[in-house]
């Protein structure tokens, strides 16, 4: 069963009761929520994902609720709970859906110990993966969204997962978070892209989320072998520039972007080394999406 199979009014009941469990790749999240806007966005973004409404196992126990007391009426706020504990400071009610997304990212980064987690976007094609580790603002989510519009299977735009016993890469394939100008860029890039209405004035500026393709959602969790590691950087008006990255720098770049490298110790070291030895690494500076995608597809030619 996917989320789309649940009629809207029933979905509301399940969200209230907290027996809805959505499966995003290797993670199952129980979501409890009474905020109508969240229900609409959830349906739009997670429609293709498998879910369960009978009592079942969940990796994460999440709930979103309106802040109590005066805050019900005066500048209403939303609170995020993981394992029934309040994790973040409250946000304005209008930011409820982005908060759910950020909260789920927090759960993956903080509550999972069975994957090495990279702060990187990743996609799959013909069984091999493209990993793009980069700091916020480098345009990795935009590039990731654009590639997924061109038929690459989305693994993740934020949290790339590496198995602990082999160099196998996967991701939860959750919605791609687009910020500010990127929202319009992607809308213009592909008219098939489905986006949530943008939410303004968040800590990251204006934010909209893009729905993953049906294939990405349903194959989420299927692993890919290493292929390319690309460190992208968007630079307005710059000509496309591609330089091979030395292996040592690819290794350092992956370690720098691993959330739980220290906690997992030598296991993490060996898995990253495996990925590096089986991948080619490049630094790419780009300004035009079509141009950079053509180049990336060239690099992935033999796959």
């Amino acid at each position: 069963m996917t989320l789309d199979d649940i009629p809207a009014e029933q979905l509301e009941v399940h969200l209230h009761r907290g027996d809805l469990v959505i499966q995003t790749g290797p993670f199952r999240a129980r979501i409890r929520c009474r905020i109508p806007r969240v229900k609409a966005d959830l349906k739009l973004m997670y429609g293709h994902f498998p879910c369960d409404i009978s009592p079942s196992f969940a990796d994460f126990d999440i709930s979103l609720s309106k802040a109590p007391y005066l805050r019900r009426w005066y500048k209403p706020q939303v609170l995020f709970f993981a394992d029934r504990q309040c994790i973040f400071k409250p946000l304005p009610l209008s930011q409820a859906f982005p908060m759910l997304e950020w909260g789920l990212n927090w759960c993956i980064a903080n509550q999972t110990t069975h994957h090495l987690i990279l702060h990187a976007a990743s996609l799959e094609r013909h069984g091999r993966s493209l990993i793009m580790p980069a700091p916020p603002g480098s345009g990795k989510s935009t590039l990731c969204a654009a590639l997924s519009c061109r038929g690459w299977r989305l693994l993740s735009d934020e949290t790339t997962l590496l198995e602990l016993d082999a160099a196998k890469i996967s991701g939860p394939a959750r919605p791609i978070s687009l910020k500010n100008e990127s929202v319009q860029v992607i809308q213009e890039f592909s008219k098939d892209a489905v986006l949530t209405p943008p939410v303004h004035d968040t800590i990251k500026g204006s934010v909209a989320h893009m729905r993953p393709s049906r294939d990405s959602a349903q194959s989420a969790g299927v692993t890919a072998s290493p292929g390319l590691v690309i460190f992208p950087r968007f630079q307005k008006g710059a000509p496309l520039q591609i330089t091979p990255t030395p292996r040592s720098a690819v290794f350092a770049g992956l370690v720098r972007n691993a959330f739980n490298f220290t906690a997992l110790g030598r296991t993490a070291f060996h898995r990253i080394a495996d990925v590096v030895s089986q991948s080619e690494g490049y630094d790419i500076i780009y300004s035009d999406l079509d141009e950079v995608i053509a180049q990336i597809e060239e690099l992935a030619h033999g796959w």
Partner: peptide, 22 residues
Amino acid sequence: IPEALARHLRGGFIRSEHNTEA
């Protein structure tokens, strides 16, 4: 133990092994 839980426990154990080593 069902794999859904086992993998969390195993991950937690790897983490503790590294903690012990440190």
